[in-house]
Amino acid sequence: MIRVLLADDQILVRAGFRALLDAQPDISVAGEAADGHEALSLVRELRPDLVLMDIRMPELDGLAATRHITEDESLDGVKVVMLTTFELDEYVFEALRSGASGFLVKDTEPDELLRAVRAVVAGDALLSPSVTRRLIAEFAARSKEPADAALLAQLTDREREVMTLVGIGLSNEEIARRLVVSPLTAKTHVSRAMVKLGARDRAQLVVLAYESGLVRPGWLG
Results as ranks from 00 to 15, higher is better:
175 I>Q: 00
200 R>K: 10
186 A>V: 13
34 A>I: 14
177 R>N: 11
102 G>F: 10
76 D>E: 11
96 L>F: 12
8 D>V: 12
25 P>L: 09
204 Q>G: 10
166 V>G: 01
115 R>Q: 12
156 T>V: 12
55 I>H: 11
122 A>V: 09
159 E>G: 02
135 L>M: 12
34 A>T: 14
14 R>T: 15
179 L>Y: 05
57 M>R: 05
60 L>I: 14
114 L>E: 10
116 A>I: 09
72 D>I: 02
96 L>D: 08
207 V>M: 02
32 E>H: 04
60 L>V: 15
165 L>A: 01
174 E>W: 01
170 L>D: 00
104 L>Q: 02
206 V>Y: 02
178 R>T: 14
21 L>F: 12
100 A>E: 11
212 S>V: 07
21 L>W: 04
98 S>I: 02
158 R>N: 09
2 I>E: 10
182 S>I: 07
154 Q>Y: 03
160 R>V: 04
127 L>G: 00
132 T>K: 00
72 D>W: 09
199 A>D: 03
220 L>R: 15
166 V>D: 00
198 G>N: 05
203 A>R: 02
35 D>R: 07
196 K>W: 03
199 A>N: 05
69 I>L: 06
180 V>A: 07
168 I>W: 04
158 R>V: 12
69 I>G: 01
146 P>K: 10
126 L>I: 12
135 L>I: 10
112 E>Y: 07
35 D>G: 07
114 L>P: 13
124 D>K: 04
80 V>P: 05
78 V>M: 03
136 I>Y: 02
183 P>K: 06
57 M>E: 09
17 F>V: 11
106 K>F: 13
139 F>D: 04
14 R>P: 11
135 L>V: 12
5 L>H: 04
32 E>M: 06
73 E>R: 09
27 I>Q: 05
62 G>D: 08
88 L>Q: 11
20 L>I: 14
19 A>F: 05
46 L>N: 13
128 S>K: 03
149 A>C: 04
41 S>Q: 14
121 V>L: 05
38 E>W: 03
215 V>Q: 09
69 I>S: 01
134 R>L: 12
110 P>D: 08
111 D>R: 09
76 D>T: 01
90 E>F: 15
15 A>Q: 13
10 Q>L: 15
186 A>H: 05
